[in-house]
Structure formats: C-alpha cells, structure tokens
Nucleic acid binder design. Structure first.
Length: 272
DNA sequence: ACGAGCGCCTGTCGGC
DNA sequence: TGCCGACAGGCGCTCG
C-alpha cells in the first residue's frame, strides 16, 4: 500500500494512536520476533535481536516512503514496499498468517509487520543517512520552490512518469499519485522533463502537492486486499480507470506501460 | 544517461 | 470446478 500519503497515515497512527490503539511513543521494546528473515535487511538476526531489546522508542517519522523509528542507540527503518503494513495489536491476538516480524512491548501490546508479498524490508542502523541519504527532496519541503523544481527537471532528459517515480529525484510518489498528478497538471506521462516550460513545471509541482494532500486527508487509498485504511480510491481521476470517462472531458482513459508500470492518462487532456 | 527486462513474492480476478 | 495468465501501491540489478 505504500506511497507517501499511506505511509504518512501509518506514521501518524503509530505516533498518535488511533481508536483504541495506543501511541508507541516511549514504549520500551522488550524483545523482537522475526518470522521471515529476509524482511530484515540489516543487521544479522542475532545482532538485531540483541540490540533492539530494552530500547525505547523516542520518535517516529517519515522520509519519502520510509518509516524511521528513532531508538535510544540507533534507528529502526522500515520500507513497506508493495504490500507491507504495520499493525498495533494486543499480544493475545494470534500472529497473522503474513506477519514477518513483531516488536513486543511487554505491556500487552505489540507492533506487527504484516506483508503478504514479502517485499518489505527493515534496517537497524546507527546512521539513518546510510539508508535515507540518496533520497530526493520531500514534496512539501519549502526549499523545493517552483524555480528549484524547474532546474531539477531541466537537469535531466527523462520521461515524466519514470522520473517522478525515481525516489532519488523526488521522494514519496508511486504509481497512483504520479498518474493522478500528471493528469491534474495536464501533462502526458511520456513528455520529456527538460522540454517543460516554467509554467508547466510550476503546475506540475502544485499538482503533485495537491494530490498528495488529498491522499493524506483521505488517509490514503485502499485497493485490492491490502491496507484497509483510507478511501482516496473513491476519488481517483485516472488510476485504474481504463476505459472510464475522464473526469474533466469524459474521453475514455487510456492505459499504457511505462517504466514497467501501468500508466493511466487522458489522451485529450494530456497531449504530447 | 536512460529505459527496458527481470527477479523478488503472494494473492485475486477474469477467461476458458 | 479448476487451471492459467495477467496483474497488483516498489525497487535493485543487469543489459543495451
């Protein structure tokens, strides 16, 4: 489920609690259980189990699509990839079929990483920049001005769709929000970055921020069988709407493959 | 520098 | 009903 709005929703929930679930701030990790070893990218299992025990969660934040849990001695960083999710649940619940690891707090609660497709990864590292250091700017960063974004787009010569999904260019967009932003900005996904005018670049940045804001307000999108969180899927303009009318001009939405990913756009609103 | 192909995984859905 | 391919919110790798 993870693009910026879904990850942001999960981070807020872990930080603030939701419904009957507590905030994890200040929780002491009594011990961890790893059920699928490949979910742990670093360090080796033994070292991880030993070093995570007895540490206290001091903060929880998001960088791009990564979740950064700050502990006293180091960072626990999680990437949900395609199907990962984090559940706060009582220890009395039987572990789910797709649980890959769990942090036990010894107070009746645990944090479980549920990930049917097993693509998700977690790292425990002293320096968070060893994992997050190559990420591009945050879309809402105030220093990312229209002018800076124009320069970034003109610094390379790439199709907009794969470029916007490149996390070293901009951190947080995935397949859904890229398609949605390009439609809102009325830009064809195959347009080449350094051909955009200043006005088009400014419009694209504004569109990216708008769709991400909408996604966060709706608490993310829930599609398929993963992530039953928000309802942004009810408001998709183009994503997974092949053949359905464009919300602006009613022309049927088209689907092509770009950068190995299905790409949805309106052939009238988003001309080459 | 850039894009395409593929691998990693499990699950769902539509067609036959 | 069962089988089979296509497809799914990501990303790292190789190969042209």
């Amino acid at each position: 489920m993870p693009e910026l709005p879904e990850v942001e929703t999960i981070v807020r929930f872990l930080r603030e609690g939701r419904d009957d679930k507590p905030s994890l701030y200040g929780f002491r990790i009594e011990k961890a259980t790893v059920l699928w070893e490949r979910s742990l990218a670093f360090p080796k299992l033994e070292e991880f189990l030993q070093n995570i025990s007895d540490q206290i969660i001091t903060s929880i934040s998001r960088r791009g699509k990564f979740i950064r849990v700050e502990l006293q001695n180091n960072y626990f960083i999680i990437h949900l990839r395609m199907s990962g999710d984090l559940w706060v649940e009582p220890e009395t619940t039987p572990p789910g079929l797709h649980h890959r690891w769990m942090l036990h707090f010894g107070n009746g609660w645990r944090l479980a990483f549920n990930d049917p497709r097993k693509f998700g990864r977690a790292w425990m590292v002293a320096d968070d920049q060893s994992i997050l250091g190559n990420l591009g700017p945050e879309p809402f960063d105030k220093t990312l001005t229209a002018d800076a974004f124009f320069k970034q787009l003109h610094h390379c010569r790439r199709q907009l769709k794969p470029l916007l999904m490149d996390q070293t260019f901009l951190a947080g967009l995935g397949n859904i929000y890229t398609d949605e932003a390009l439609h809102l900005a009325k830009l064809h996904p195959m347009l080449v970055s350094n051909n955009l005018s200043e006005a088009q670049c400014a419009k694209l940045l504004a569109a990216i921020r708008q769709v991400l804001r909408e996604g966060i307000v709706r608490q993310g999108a829930s599609i398929d069988w993963v992530y039953r969180g928000g309802d942004f899927q009810k408001y998709f303009r183009v994503y997974q709407r092949t053949g359905k009318p464009c919300p602006v001009c009613t022309t049927p939405i088209e689907r092509i493959t770009l950068g190995q990913r299905s790409t949805h756009f309106c052939p009238i609103c988003q001309k080459m």
